[in-house]
Design a protein around this nucleic acid. Structure first.
Lengths: 248, 248
DNA sequence: TAATTTATATTTGTATGACAAATTAACTTT
DNA sequence: AAAGTTAATTTGTCATACAAATATAAATTA
């Protein structure tokens, strides 16, 4: 008996379409801000129904690869992906990874310490005037006593992102983004009181000064101090959380 | 005139549904391997049509958060995401980031050098017998002269992953995974010849011995040597590539 | 009886057609 | 000329039907 079978297709049509489109984007045949054909047109070309096309497009939208707008000049467009645009994507991955693997805070703190030390050293070497200005701006936001705890958290994140970018190593920035995003939920467990805000801000001020002076040693010292301080706050928050749960 | 308007909803229904489900997964109310209600049931609960529910599910499927199977015992299930399961997700993000941002190889090499040095130091401290055995196994795979260049590349990746995991810092492993995945396409530009394979393998042997001896200094030295060696190969490959393009 | 085959029910996958909503361009009216 | 109106285009949503896969139970056969 001769055996000449067609290749078995296990993945769904919408997945196959999504993969082809993604490939086109990665390959470069679909460049940033290019407009895809309309859904009807795509369904004709791929010989599948519009709902199937739509499912495929939603897959890509979930990855932030495309965006859609209604209307005559609307349609579906290829996104230009920078670090910011990818952070959504990374947040999911990193947050899930941290929450589902029960990674200890000490592991996170250790990794962050080392990575951020590296960022600071490079920032001391390569920081430009623009970097310094941005750091000052972010610091000013933190000094506002009227902002909510959530806003303070986000200002803190922005400050550390700015440090990462001051390193002028985009690969390192990318990795640091992942780490910062992964830490965000943990950071939100803490509600910074005024006294704690003051301490954080003072650390940031010294850090900024060290980067301005291109003093690597001091910069690394301050980072170490802050990571340790945050770790102690985290432990406290965790204990409070545990006590609260016991009462329920 | 009093102003009491309903909140404006800009995102589509399918996105809202997807976000709610994702939140449930992240929050923990939907645990790994839990089965979601059927699509019909979901469409009743969310008060939207089934195609809309499906678009939402495809969004989550694109993020590898869920999987679906047909049939009576089928349905949609929550994925248990470990490091391996996330690599697909990361590969997209990291590859896109590297390719669309034209990150220089020196930036990548520098970041990798620092991160992998850190891995090695921790591996020296915390490596177990199982870690050593795994490293030996991976090394054995590389020694096989019959494997293809692609297989050699993948064996190399596995070796470096094993080092990352020997650090026993899961956060660092996760970050290192991202970096390794991002580098994969670049690594594939090179076709390792026998002489180059020998050099790589010898470096790996010395690295393994250093980790076995818990000799941090030597381990870091070898890593530095290898990263520099790979950088030179990359430069060569890039030049060849450029020459080839000129001829076309 | 035991193994195999056949129905059957369940659930996701796909197709078709229609209408709603948003948005721009052209047109009309004042 | 400015403002409002209409029409056209494109994504967003809905309803319904059927196809395909797959496990369970019933029926058939050796």
């Amino acid at each position: 008996m001769s055996l000449e079978v067609e290749p078995i297709i296990r993945s769904s049509l919408s997945k196959q379409v999504a993969d082809q489109l993604q490939e086109a984007i990665l390959e470069g045949s679909l460049k940033a801000d290019d407009r895809l054909p309309t859904e009807e047109e795509l369904s004709k070309r791929f010989q599948v129904s519009r709902p199937t096309i739509r499912e495929a497009l939603k897959r890509l939208a979930a990855k932030n690869l495309i965006r859609s707008r209604r209307g005559p000049t609307g349609g579906t467009f290829v996104n230009h992906l920078g670090a910011d645009e990818l952070s959504d994507h990374l947040t999911t991955a990193a947050t899930l990874f941290v929450s589902m693997n029960q990674i200890s805070l000490s592991e996170i703190a250790h990794t962050r310490l080392e990575l951020e030390s590296l960022c600071c050293q490079l920032a001391c070497q390569h920081r430009t005037d623009e970097d310094l200005t941005r750091l000052e701006t972010e610091l000013e936001r933190q000094r506002d006593i009227n902002i909510s705890p959530e806003e303070f958290c986000s200002a803190d994140v922005s400050f550390h992102r700015a440090i990462a970018e001051a390193s002028h190593n985009r690969m390192l920035s990318f990795v640091m983004y992942t780490l910062i995003e992964a830490l965000q939920p943990v950071a939100n467990m803490i509600t910074f009181h005024f006294r704690e805000r003051d301490i954080i801000i003072s650390q940031h001020e010294r850090l900024l000064q060290a980067i301005r002076d291109q003093n690597r040693v001091t910069a690394v010292e301050v980072i170490k101090e802050q990571v340790n301080y945050l770790s102690s706050l985290h432990d406290e928050a965790r204990e409070n959380h545990a006590r609260k749960q016991q009462r329920d």
